[in-house]
């Protein structure tokens, strides 16, 4: 049963990912992306990583995509932008990226198949407690660095956003 669940979730993820990438309306694309993320969360859960699954839902689907939606709404991308998208997405442009992706798939897939055949994931659950222990011992430096990175992003985003507000106030 669980095995089927994995393949179903994988199919949903791939389908919605393709849809998310090709939609013309940004809001629709983001909703499809949420579905992709949710199905990836299901896969995480099946793989025995409940903590990662929770983070995927809470932060990715919950926070990051919502941030995208905010911006889309703020910029007010309406019908005209949909029309422009269909103008931009001419089939001629797809050829080269499709070829490149296809070749990459072949080469990557060849690499993946080199992995030892018997490697199976048995779904042994790694609980959040264990993750936390390792995270704050062996990876403590990484955590600090991630903190610095987030701070830098905070400052950067604040800076960019503030200039926008000030300019708008002037006009």
């Amino acid at each position: 049963m669980s095995v089927w669940l994995f393949y179903i979730a994988a199919g949903v993820a791939i389908t919605t990912a393709i849809l998310a990438v090709t939609r013309k309306n940004a809001s629709h694309a983001l909703i499809y992306l949420v579905v992709t993320l949710l199905s990836i969360a299901v896969i995480f859960f099946l793989l025995g990583a409940p903590f990662a699954a929770a983070l995927e839902i809470v932060i990715y689907a919950g926070a990051i995509v919502v941030l995208f939606l905010f911006v889309v709404m703020m910029l007010n991308l309406g019908r005209s932008s949909v029309a422009r998208e269909s103008q931009w997405l001419r089939p001629g442009m797809w050829v080269l990226p499709a070829i490149l992706s296809g070749v990459l798939f072949v080469v990557f897939g060849f690499e993946v198949l080199q992995v030892e055949n018997s490697a199976k994931i048995e779904g042994q659950v790694v609980p959040p407690k264990e993750v936390g222990k390792v995270l704050f011992h062996e990876y403590l430096l990484g955590v600090e660095l991630a903190g610095v990175l987030l701070l830098a992003a905070l400052v950067g985003a604040f800076h960019l956003g503030r200039r926008y507000l000030e300019e708008r106030r002037e006009t």
Binding site: P97, L100, V103, L104, V107, F108, E111
Partner: peptide, 16 residues
């Protein structure tokens, strides 16, 4: 982005 992916391809081909 295209050249990056192309470079990735080259590296992979070299490795394979």
């Amino acid at each position: 982005a295209f050249t990056m992916l192309g470079g990735l391809l080259l590296v992979l081909l070299t490795v394979v």
